[in-house]
């Protein structure tokens, strides 16, 4: 399952997507939990009883603001979350 957490508003499209099939077999030792400086990820048991990473509820409506520290206006090379996720389950839409 691809889980897209975030939103699209007048300012743009802001989603963090997690490919739960790749996440389920995590061989990065759940590195996303500590890689994000804001601690935005958590491990949940989803509706199909899979233990996978998700973006915490309180961040889902404010990603454009919460991710700013890792995304300076001048550009960025790599993100802590998607770099730490070696299975490649985490992607940003913007």
């Amino acid at each position: 399952m691809i889980a897209n957490y975030g939103y699209k508003d007048g300012a743009g499209e802001f989603y963090i997507s997690i490919d739960t099939d790749k996440c389920l077999a995590c061989d990065a030792d759940r590195a996303c939990l500590t890689a994000c400086p804001k601690g935005m990820f958590e491990i949940i048991t989803d509706d199909y009883d899979d233990e996978v990473a998700a973006v915490k509820q309180q961040f889902r409506r404010s990603l454009a603001y919460d991710c700013t520290a890792c995304k300076p206006a001048g550009g960025y090379a790599s993100l802590p979350c998607s770099s730490a996720c070696t299975p490649g389950a985490i992607k940003h839409s913007w």
Partner: peptide, 10 residues
């Protein structure tokens, strides 16, 4: 569900 998005921000 195989893919989803939910927008409750706006």
């Amino acid at each position: 569900v195989t893919n989803f998005l939910m927008n409750d921000k706006c």
